[in-house]
């Protein structure tokens, strides 16, 4: 089987956590850091560790993401979640180009057509979408044009925005992180009339990754759209989804797939840290 030969094996370690100004007495959290089995990836091994120690509970949420829930009742001033997984990924498939027209049924994916808080557009962007659509006679080309537009107009600047940011904010300052670019792309794809999903996962930064070398990776986000079938694309890097991408969850936007979120009783949070280490094993 050639696909076996072509596949990569990636080991991902994702460490995420909060620090507080004093003792937190109680805390309830949900981590969405567990890669899912999917058409283009197989999860060989995964685990999530929590500090202070807590019993974890797993379930699959509405969007199909594996959620690890836990609560901590011992006093603590720091909370850490470490997710480790080994995933086999495939190279990109063909990007379907042309051949489809606009007359496909979208009812099945209706909720991916609606704007959300982070994917809302303004009049300016809506007009741009209309123009892009007019210029392309099939949905696939229009969608690619949207992704290209986002990539060319909004600069990818790490740390430019926080997790609460939205597409409009990134658009106004013409810069953002992968989360923002994906929100903007998803919002514009929806405005085109294409159901679009926001995808959360990881990216190996090097296209020519050395086997055995551990590199600093990142939480990543990209989009998928429906034009008779689903197409995945990474608007931040302008590449189709392939070897380097590990998929964790899909939703309408970040709010449906936050890697770590929770509530706690105690003083305010003074710091937070996210570290992702990715190693290509094969």
């Amino acid at each position: 089987m050639t696909s076996l030969v072509d596949s990569w094996r990636l080991k991902v370690q994702h460490k995420s956590g909060f620090e507080y100004a004093g003792t937190v007495t109680s805390s309830y959290n949900e981590a969405r850091m567990w890669p899912r089995n999917d058409a283009r990836q197989a999860v060989l091994d995964a685990k999530i560790e929590v500090w202070p120690p807590a019993r974890t509970y797993q379930y699959e949420d509405y969007w199909g993401t594996v959620v690890t829930a836990f609560d901590v009742h011992a006093g603590h001033d720091k909370l850490t979640v470490t997710a480790s997984s080994t995933v086999e990924t495939l190279p990109p498939g063909d990007l379907l180009s042309g051949g489809l027209d606009w007359g496909f049924d979208t009812d099945r994916w209706y909720e991916f057509l609606l704007p959300t808080r982070r994917t809302r557009l303004n009049d300016e962007l809506t007009a741009i979408v209309a123009e892009l659509r007019a210029r392309h006679d099939n949905p696939q080309d229009a969608a690619m044009a949207v992704c290209e537009f986002v990539r060319s107009e909004v600069a990818y600047v790490p740390g430019a925005t926080g997790v609460q940011s939205d597409a409009l904010h990134a658009w106004e300052q013409r810069k953002g992180v992968c989360q923002d670019l994906s929100h903007l792309a998803a919002g514009m794809l929806r405005a085109l009339g294409l159901p679009a999903r926001y995808v959360s996962g990881y990216l190996h930064p090097k296209p020519s990754a050395e086997i055995g070398e551990s590199v600093v990776g990142q939480s990543h986000a990209w989009v998928e759209w429906w034009a008779g079938r689903w197409t995945s694309y990474d608007p931040t890097n302008g590449v189709p989804i392939g070897h380097r991408h590990v998929l964790v969850g899909r939703g309408r936007e970040y709010g449906d797939v936050p890697p770590l979120k929770g509530i706690y009783a105690g003083p305010k949070s003074t710091g937070q840290g996210v570290e992702v280490t990715i190693t290509r094993l094969r």
């Binding site: 995420s16 997790v163 609460q164 770590l260 009783a265 937070q272």
Partner: peptide, 10 residues
């Protein structure tokens, strides 16, 4: 009653 604070991370 407890007053909860919320947090989220990438």
């Amino acid at each position: 009653a407890v007053n909860w604070s919320s947090g989220a991370l990438a």
